[in-house]
Simulated scan of single mutants.
Amino acid sequence: MDKLDQLDDRELRALRRALGDMAALSSLPAMWVNADEERIATNLADALVQVLDLDGVRVSFRTEQGESREVSRFPQGQPVDLVHRKRCSQATAFSSGARM
């Protein structure tokens, strides 16, 4: 019996999604040809939020001129309260002893 025949529907759907996600991520560099840094960071952040099912992503980068910039992305439809998120992350970092 083939190993693929032994997979249940849930496992097969998860494998198909993973393969689709890998294909999507591998195509990103082709979209970045002639794109500026902010466009690249935005595309990367959007892809990571969707593919990895994250609560949020922040991409920090430097422009060709040496300016520091960052792009933050959160799942669509989710309310974004950046002040609350920052306070929560600082409280968590403080309670764990991590430095921000």
Rank of each mutant, 00 (worst) to 15 (best):
W32K: 01
A41S: 12
F61T: 06
S26F: 07
P75A: 04
L4M: 04
V57L: 01
L52C: 14
D9L: 13
R16P: 00
R62W: 11
P29E: 15
D55G: 01
A45E: 03
L48P: 02
A18S: 14
M31H: 07
Q76H: 11
F94V: 06
S95T: 13
P79R: 08
G77V: 07
D46V: 12
L15P: 00
L4V: 04
E38R: 12
P75Y: 01
G97C: 06
D5M: 09
A91R: 10
Q6I: 05
D21H: 13
K3I: 06
N34Y: 10
F61V: 08
A14D: 15
L4C: 02
A24H: 13
S96K: 05
A91V: 10
D9R: 10
S72E: 14
G77E: 13
R39E: 15
V71T: 15
A24Y: 06
A18Q: 15
L25K: 00
L4T: 02
R17L: 15
A93L: 11
G66S: 07
T42A: 09
R58K: 14
S27H: 05
L4E: 02
G20C: 08
L54Q: 11
Q90N: 09
D8F: 09
R73T: 01
L54T: 10
I40R: 00
G66N: 09
R10Y: 10
M100N: 08
T92D: 05
Q50M: 05
D21V: 13
R16S: 13
